[in-house]
Design a protein around this nucleic acid. Structure first.
Length: 449
RNA sequence: GGCCCUAUCGUCUAACGGUUAGGACACAUGCUUUUCAAGCAUGGAACCCGGGUUCGAUUCCCGGUAGGGUCACCA
């Protein structure tokens, strides 16, 4: 069987994570079976559909790493719908009725309705099993406003038939649309595709995910600095578990393991914490030069706004350290804007009263700083090539005098921050000269207390 | 409200009649370079309720309850 699936978004809004998930599931299934993917822009609502939204959708799906083989717009296919509607009317399976407009009761409009035979429709859903509907309650539902102006259900059915769609994989919000579409299908004499309705994902309170309850646009995740493979991996595993039990999977691995029947039946909450965990993973997996390039761009912009002189080399050497401190790029920007990295590029501004820590006296603090300074002065220059060797230079002393008492003033002197990376890492990054200079500055500041 | 779907830790889930109900995220505690982050170790935490079926139900059936979806001249 030559499998053909479709991505049928309507370009009436920015690419939603729900749209992305629909595409991911269809993509995995199609690629697994060597099938064909059709992107179909469902833009029959002329009022709300825009080119901008369509581009946002294609752009973001591509960013995620997805692709398709054929592309159509429903707005360019009115002739095909016209023929189908005409045929239905000619065969007496549909009719034109004059009715009051629902928008304005004083206006009479023509609506084309399907003559509903009122049968019971049972279809097999790959994810849920058999589902039965009594279609009598649907009545003669509307399929078009005019022969050249189809409504959603008609367009979908005609297109699925014309494009040879074999598998319709969509959200469960379409379950109740299915009997209606099957009725049209049967009236047109079209084959019935395989249906698979997956559950929608939900907001934290288990209600429908909406703009009010968090980000729903793929572009906003992208702007915050989420990585495409992370979002892709999360979206795929939200409501689907790989048989291997793996949670981290590349696109190729997902394709290899994917089966429609393994998609869960119940709705899952979209959890940003878990997404962050995925993103941290993929951020760590980035080659260091790639990480540094992006990291530098963010630091440069953030530090520029703080009037800190830029030093590309210093920033690059910082990359291994910033990498383990963030889950999303946005965090690096926030940290840099809060001044957490200033000390790598400029002398720290010390609050002398903060140099002695806790119960340690000022006199002892001075003594410790003087001692540490001696050790670090005596240490040969290449000691600074490795944080471990810097540590070794003062470790015995810190052990006997009290690590906190010795290390806190050192760390604070070097960074001027309450919270920062450890002192040896910092000394390594800023080098011997700056390290000694900063200790001297701290000693000078504390002597004025 | 009618119709349809669903129901395991806070969250994502494993289990396919017999298990100390497993894992991941999050959380708590401890360790590590008495800060922060990361890492490592440990810990707390779940079968919606009621009936059946069965030697035995988280698992199968029915009912209830709860949640979701859908009831357009939108898609």
């Amino acid at each position: 069987m030559n499998i053909r699936v479709r991505f049928p978004p309507s370009p009436t809004g920015f690419c939603h994570v729900g749209t992305a998930r629909m595409a991911v599931l269809n993509y995995l299934f199609a690629r697994k079976h060597g099938g064909v993917i059709i992107f179909r822009s469902e833009d029959t609502d002329k009022e709300r559909s825009t080119k901008e939204f369509e581009e946002d959708i294609t752009d973001n799906l591509t960013w995620l790493g997805l692709s398709w083989d054929e592309f159509y717009r429903q707005s360019e296919r009115t002739e095909i719908y016209r023929a189908a509607i005409h045929k239905l009317i000619a065969e007496g399976k549909a009719y034109i009725s004059d009715e009051e407009s629902k928008k304005d009761a004083s206006v009479m409009v023509k609506i084309i309705r399907l003559k509903n035979p009122g049968t019971k429709i049972t279809f097999t859903d790959t994810i849920r099993g058999d589902i039965t509907f009594d279609t009598t309650e649907l009545g003669d539902f509307a399929i078009a406003r005019a022969e050249n102006d189809p409504l959603y259900h008609l367009a979908v059915v005609v297109d699925d038939g014309d494009m040879g769609i074999t598998h319709v994989i969509r959200g469960e919000d379409h379950i109740s649309n299915t009997p209606r579409q099957i009725l049209i299908q049967e009236a047109l004499g079209l084959p019935r595709p395989v249906y698979a309705h997956y559950p929608l994902h939900l907001a934290a309170d288990r209600s429908k995910l909406s703009k009010r309850k968090g980000d729903v646009a793929v572009r906003s995740y992208r702007e915050k600095g989420y990585l495409a493979p992370a979002l892709l991996n999360y979206l795929a595993t939200l409501g689907w578990t790989a048989p291997s039990g793996k949670e981290i999977l590349s696109l190729e691995e997902m394709i290899g393991e994917f089966e429609l029947a393994d998609i869960h039946k119940s709705g899952a909450v979209f959890d940003v914490e878990k997404l962050n965990w995925y993103n941290r993973h993929y951020l760590q997996a980035l080659p260091l030069p790639d990480f540094a390039a992006e990291s530098n761009a963010i630091l440069k912009a953030s530090l520029g706004a703080r009037d800190i002189a830029w030093n590309e080399a210093a920033a690059t050497s910082l990359a291994p350290l910033t990498r383990e401190r963030i889950a999303v790029w946005e965090e690096l920007r926030e940290h840099a804007q809060a001044g957490e990295y200033d000390f790598f590029f400029a002398e720290p501004r010390l609050d002398s009263s903060r140099i002695p820590q806790g119960k340690v006296s000022t006199a002892d603090t001075i003594r410790h700083l003087e001692s540490v300074k001696q050790f670090l002065t005596a240490a040969p220059l290449d000691t600074y090539d490795d944080p471990e060797r810097i540590k070794a230079a003062v470790w015995e002393y810190a052990g006997t005098e009290g690590r906190g008492a010795v290390l806190w003033p050192l760390r604070y002197s070097l960074t001027g921050l309450e919270r920062s990376p450890d002192p040896f890492e910092v000394a390594h990054l800023i080098g011997k000269e700056a390290t000694l200079r900063r200790i001297d500055a701290a000693l000078l500041a504390i002597s004025k207390i």
